[in-house]
Simulated assay, not measured.
Amino acid sequence: MIKTVTIVDGGYFKKVVVTEHKLAHRRYTDFLYDNIRSCEDDDEDLMRILYYDCLRYEGEQQLPISGDSKRFYGNPAEFDGLASYDLMAIRLGELRFRGFILKQEDSTFSRTLGDSDFLPSFEQKGVDMRIGLDIAHYSEKRLVDRIILISNDTDCIPAMKEARKNGVQIVVVEFEGQSLHRDLVKHSDYVRWREIIEPNLD
Rank of each mutant, 00 (worst) to 15 (best):
F122I: 06
D115M: 12
S121R: 13
Y73F: 15
H137E: 12
Q104G: 02
H137S: 11
F79T: 01
S66F: 14
S69D: 11
P64R: 05
D115F: 11
R91M: 04
R96Y: 09
N75C: 07
D86G: 02
L119P: 00
D153C: 09
R111T: 05
K70S: 08
I101T: 04
L102T: 08
V144A: 13
D134Y: 09
R142N: 04
E140T: 09
E140Y: 12
R98K: 15
T112M: 04
K141N: 08
F100C: 03
S66R: 15
T112R: 04
K125A: 07
P64F: 02
G114N: 12
S151F: 10
F97D: 07
D117C: 07
I101N: 00
E78R: 15
R71T: 13
I90H: 11
P76K: 05
I150S: 03
D145T: 11
Q62F: 08
A83E: 13
D155M: 06
E123K: 15
S139M: 03
R142W: 01
I131Q: 09
R96E: 11
K70H: 11
G114F: 14
P76R: 05
F122P: 00
A77K: 10
Y138C: 09
S121D: 14
I147E: 07
K70M: 13
D117S: 10
I90L: 11
D155A: 05
I135D: 03
Q61R: 14
